[in-house]
Design a protein around this nucleic acid. Sequence first.
DNA 1: CCATCTGAAAGTGTCGACAATCCCGTTGAC
DNA 2: GTCAACGGGATTGTCGACACTTTCAGATGG
Lengths: 251, 251
Amino acid sequence: MPFTLIAMLRTAPSDSFRTGSLASVLETEIERLILAGTIQPGERINENQLAARFGTSRGPIREAIRALEGAGMVEAIPNRGVFVRTLSVGEVREVYDVRAALFGLAGRLMADRATSGDVETLDDFIARMEAAASALDFESYYPLNLAFHAFILDACGNATLAAEYKAFVKRLTLFRARSLVQGGGLGVSNREHREMVEAVRARDAQWAHDAHWRHVINAKNRLLAVVRAEEAAVEVPSAGGTHGDDQTSGR
Amino acid sequence: MPFTLIAMLRTAPSDSFRTGSLASVLETEIERLILAGTIQPGERINENQLAARFGTSRGPIREAIRALEGAGMVEAIPNRGVFVRTLSVGEVREVYDVRAALFGLAGRLMADRATSGDVETLDDFIARMEAAASALDFESYYPLNLAFHAFILDACGNATLAAEYKAFVKRLTLFRARSLVQGGGLGVSNREHREMVEAVRARDAQWAHDAHWRHVINAKNRLLAVVRAEEAAVEVPSAGGTHGDDQTSGR
DNA sequence: CCATCTGAAAGTGTCGACAATCCCGTTGAC
DNA sequence: GTCAACGGGATTGTCGACACTTTCAGATGG
């Protein structure tokens, strides 16, 4: 099974063109393993094992891992190996705050640059998400939500921003219970989506910024609330107020 | 000369502890070469040459380069080599916008979290920069300015944000005339600094965000103005209005 | 019974060599 | 004279092997 894997990947239909350099293929592939949870956060990455799995030598594997390290997905400890990063609650909060800032910028740019066609597409997304939400169809809601966010990033006209935002979203997968990350009430989330689109339609940059920013901050607070409740349930029911507040100033 | 270089670096006084893994040393070292302009933007990076220069084999060099690729400092083209990235004017604008969003967040966080000691330190920076500015002492103003910004990032309590911001600042070095990047009237810049600190002192998160954000946006506009003037001087003096506007909505 | 030493196994760090690819000046044909 | 095929040289891509470090289990001594 391992031997033909690489041959397949290098001519894979996914990226088809310019697949080049084994290392870059391996990078995506190892990232996939991490994102899928095959290699769990905190786990050590075994170079020999991966090399055997993909049927290559360790050279390209090491290069791929180094690239992932730059992306903040893994952490290398000299002579000990590289480990899949784990995000503490504090780091999750940090990432969410950065994400909020970036998404706020995306909103601002959308208000400035979105074409009427873009706004139509956004409306369409909203409608479809609303349908899925009222039908409680979680299965189709989640990918729609993802596509909605991705569309905003791609349409806002700042490729640097888009790349960075996506990298941060990926990082959130490294939080222990990543199932929670995508959580958050469908209805609430969609109400926020509607405001975002309204602000863009109105070409109000400040409003759009705030709406987009708040959307992420609210997601952060919903997540942190769940985490905190979870922790409190485990702890001895005494004075266990975790740490400081979590709203990064509500404007 | 090359043979002892690595031995020196690995026990260098700079990082002293846990220098480990040649690759990470080489990463900083190659980055230094790029930042210093020894390897110019757009130039190809020759693996053999670097290996000879540092007295190592190509393996660690390749790993270091892959890490730099992840950081957005170089760009790899399969079977052609890796090139030091060059930033177009458009990309510079993108990077500045992202920087502004990140710095705005730093300002917001400072307003929430800065200790009175932090504010004192900020005041001190302002005073020293003002002294340097009125003495027209550019040599000492620039590092102070850098340290001022670095302090804000470190004190705002979000390490993820700090790392990301610093990476973006580094990227700006890849713009052709990086001399312009640090430019911008001393006096104007310092007026903006004062407002930033005032907002933090007042614990006004929104004001602090806006002041920090505007500081970067203004720097962007100053740079773009110079670039545009430069371009206009070269072009035929006819209708040559470059491209769109540059203010990302002035609030 | 616990602490310490020791050595083998596992795994990372680095190297030199070979294969594949690309670049560029040259040759040849039309 | 221009264009296309064609090598030689340089450079990247990949591999297998060796050196060094860490880890862990078992032996040894208190």
